[in-house]
């Protein structure tokens, strides 16, 4: 592992909850690792296994999807669907030979700024512990 390894982490966030929580974390002046690249989704029900695989293929060290609390989905069940898809995608990562721990789903309500910061920290810690995604060509790519 290179000494200056800075994990690159993709966070797919629902605009109704986790994305708003990210805004709140900012307003609350909470610190969280700057390794997170947020991709806003209208609902985590939009997430596709292929989005996750492409992120890893392009060298992401970790990927997570953050959606509403159970029962709170703006579109009723998008977050439940996303949970299942992430479980499925974890199996694909195992098939490929990547650690499934590089991928996770979090329930983060719109009012949970601190929870957003915690999730960002947890995934950064995981990525640091697991080391760089072996598909990543070199730092900075």
């Amino acid at each position: 592992m290179s000494n200056n390894y800075e994990p690159k982490i993709i966070a797919f966030c629902c605009r109704y909850c986790a994305y708003t929580a990210a805004d709140l974390a900012g307003s609350m002046r909470l610190e969280y690792p700057s390794n997170i690249r947020v991709v806003q989704l209208l609902c985590t029900g939009r997430i596709d296994v292929l989005h996750v695989l492409k992120a890893f293929e392009q060298g992401a060290d970790a990927v997570y999807v953050a959606g509403c609390e159970p029962g709170d989905c703006h579109f009723l069940e998008g977050n439940y669907r996303a949970v299942k898809r992430i479980a499925y995608a974890k199996n694909l990562l195992k098939e490929i030979g990547l650690e499934p721990e590089r991928l996770e789903f979090f329930h983060i309500g719109a009012s949970e700024g601190p929870r957003f910061a915690e999730a960002a920290k947890e995934m950064t810690d995981r990525a640091l512990k697991l080391g760089p995604n072996p598909l990543r060509k070199k730092q900075g790519e």
Binding site: L50, L53, L92, L98
Partner: peptide, 18 residues
């Protein structure tokens, strides 16, 4: 089409890793 995309992505990653 979607499953082809998934398998293709998996195979590209396997090719790189192995």
């Amino acid at each position: 089409e979607k499953e082809v995309g998934i398998l293709a992505s998996e195979l590209r990653m396997i090719s790189e890793l192995e």
